[in-house]
Design a protein around this nucleic acid. Structure first.
Length: 571
RNA sequence: GCGCCCGUAGCUCAGCGGAUAGAGUACUCGGCUACGAACCGAUUGGUCGGAGGUUCGAAUCCUCUCGGGCGCGCCA
């Protein structure tokens, strides 16, 4: 099916070319010029004629009138009207009530799916918590933005590889090993999990203040770990297993899985080759004992590759990981979802990749997001201003359960629904804003379930399910129906799905889908209040409205999944 | 000092070159003998931080400026 907008652009291209032989815009350029009138009553698309005023040497309203007369016939065009310097176009209702509705029914879950990702591969690096530390609200951004971007890319046909780049290497493991051997016990750690590891780690720092020799011991243990000491390796693996067991609970609640859990340790052996390559290319200079890549030509501080003692650094590991991923997966895009504080770091090592001659360096994309504070204060384990994700989810789920006990006490399978809605509320809240903005996470707002919230959207989805269930199925179209304003408006909203998906991918911005869900839910609820569905006056109206309800359900369901939320048939 | 990001309704935020700047929340009011009221509707609320500039047209682009956040060598 050729969509209306493309047909309109093609027609406008012809009309303009007839009036202006030289320098007429292409159909694609016209598509970018098209805007939406402020009032839907004025039309669905508006073409501003101001830019043509100079080359055509005529006033914009005159041009609009000439264009209107020169326009070839456009299918589904209701009317074209001159309004000042604009030429406004109204799409016929039947375009929406027949073409769009039929398309949604025919494509089902594939409706709105763009195809530009077909045959391409994307590697996404996200979540990446530090082992032996609890999963807190600061990790929510990378986890939920990253996974949403994965879903979006998959929807557009990309082959996606999700990598959890665990923080599983470094001297902190030497400290943990010392702490465990000195004060820990197998039973306590098995029982307490990550929490016990954290308290061992905290204790180490307290004791090390009094006894600096502990730091030396820790370095020695980490060095043994690096040299594959069997006992230390076993402990290290155990710590990782314990941590993953904890994280898996959170990932399961979010419905997130990864293709690989290759953390920092995985790349340690791959770094020397890249350091060697940097040397060969004469990119390394020694400065104050450290090996750096000078980036002053790019107006950036130098990129540190090796410490004074010869050990590696964060950029070294990132370079090695990128090369490995490129050689292994032959990606078309590598996406890194990390905090905005690392913007400079990524600019630096992307540039180093370029200097090393890796011509795919520009396929690497850093997707930064803003800092989270809680109740106006920075996150800090020291002052206790941390919100663990498991506690946050638990609070949200409890609150949902209370509301459900009131509103829908007989609902079977209440626990899993409460989890979907409670966790969904937090995810939706987080993905409601532009990712780059800092978030002041306020509990009251996150746990408010009225208005523009996750529960509102899931409630709306459940509502569509409920109506369809009572109807006993979705009927076939059974005659011509003149849709009212609310019905057409809902279909117009549904028809925007694909362009929203495209925009969200282009901007790496899940928020676009979150806001779109609110548009759809709002349009459906308005329709629902204005139109009787099951008790419609005529069978034709009833059939149409049921089909419309099913269409809304389809789009709501697809969009919910794109932002890591679960579809709730009942709530 | 250099660089990046953010300033839009009381609050939280959309809009990022087009016509009268929008939601939610809070406040006030109306709608369940209705397919789910976690809903819908109405009212109130704005020198788009400020000043210049570009443009037929600027919340949107450019310059400067003020306020807030972040980054700038051996952490990640």
């Amino acid at each position: 099916m050729i969509d209306f907008k493309s047909a309109l652009c093609a027609a406008l291209e012809k009309a303009i070319a007839a009036l202006l032989p030289e320098g007429a815009p292409t159909a694609e350029e016209i598509g970018e010029m098209l805007t939406t009138p402020p009032d839907p009553a004025m039309g669905d698309y508006a073409f501003p004629c101001f830019k043509l005023a100079k080359p055509m040497r005529k006033a914009p309203p005159v041009i609009a009138g000439m264009l209107k007369d020169a326009l070839p016939p456009i299918p589904d065009l209701e009317k074209a009207e001159v309004a000042g310097g604009y030429l406004n176009f109204s799409v016929s209702d039947t375009y929406y009530t027949v073409s769009v509705l039929n398309e949604i029914e025919a494509k089902g879950d594939d409706y709105g799916r763009p195809d530009f990702g077909a045959g391409k591969t994307v590697v996404l690096d996200y979540s990446s918590p530090n082992v032996a530390k609890p999963f807190h609200i600061g990790h929510l951004g990378t986890t939920v933005i990253g996974h949403s971007l994965k879903k979006l890319h998959e929807f557009a046909g990309y082959h996606c590889i999700g990598i959890n780049h665990l923080g599983d290497w470094g001297t902190q493991f030497g400290k943990l090993i010392v702490a465990y051997r000195t004060w820990g016990s197998k039973e306590e750690v098995e029982k307490g999990g990550v929490d016990e590891l954290v308290s061992l780690y905290v204790r180490f720092h307290e004791e090390a203040e009094k006894d600096p020799a502990l730091n030396d011991a820790a370095r020695a243990e980490f060095s043994k770990l690096e040299h594959h000491d069997e006992e230390n390796i076993a402990l290290w693996k155990w710590f990782i297993d314990l941590s993953l067991r904890e994280y898996e609970k959170t990932y399961r609640q979010l419905g997130i899985t990864f293709d690989y859990y290759t953390g920092e340790s995985f790349y340690t052996d791959l770094m020397p080759a890249q350091v060697e390559k940097l040397r060969e290319k004469n990119l390394l200079t020694i400065d104050d004992g450290a090996s750096i890549v000078d980036l002053s030509a790019y107006k950036m501080p130098p990129c540190l590759i090796l410490k004074r003692d010869g050990s590696t650094l964060y950029p070294t590991r990132d370079i090695a990981a990128a090369v490995y991923r490129h050689d292994t997966f032959a990606f078309d895009k590598a996406i890194y979802v990390t905090s905005a504080q690392q913007i400079m770091h990524f600019q630096q090592w992307f540039r180093v990749l370029d200097l090393m001659g890796y011509d795919w360096y520009d396929r690497c994309v850093h997707v930064p997001y803003g800092t989270v504070s809680v109740n106006g204060e920075k996150l800090s384990t020291r002052t206790g201003n941390v919100v663990l994700l498991r506690d946050l989810f638990k609070t949200a789920i409890e609150k949902v359960s209370e509301i459900m006990a009131q509103k829908n006490p007989d609902l079977p399978d209440r626990e899993s629904v409460a989890e979907a809605v409670g966790v969904g509320a937090i995810v939706f809240h987080y993905l409601s804003n532009s990712r780059i903005k800092d978030i002041n996470f306020m509990m009251d707002d996150a746990l408010n379930f009225d208005g523009n919230t996750g529960p509102y959207v899931q409630y709306t989805y459940a509502r569509t399910c409920s109506v369809l269930e009572k109807a006993g199925g979705i009927p076939e179209a059974n005659g011509e129906y003149r849709a009212n304003a609310a019905e057409v408006s809902l279909l117009k909203t549904l028809s925007k799905f694909e362009s929203k998906v495209t925009d969200a991918i282009g901007a790496y911005e899940p928020m676009i889908i979150t806001r779109y869900l609110l548009d759809v839910a709002g349009a459906f609820n308005q329709f629902y209040h204005e139109c009787q569905i099951l008790t419609a006056d005529t069978e034709v109206a009833k059939a149409f409205r049921l089909r419309l309800t099913a269409a809304a359900k389809t789009v709501l369901g697809s969009a919910l999944e794109l932002i890591c939320m679960k579809k709730t048939e009942k709530i």
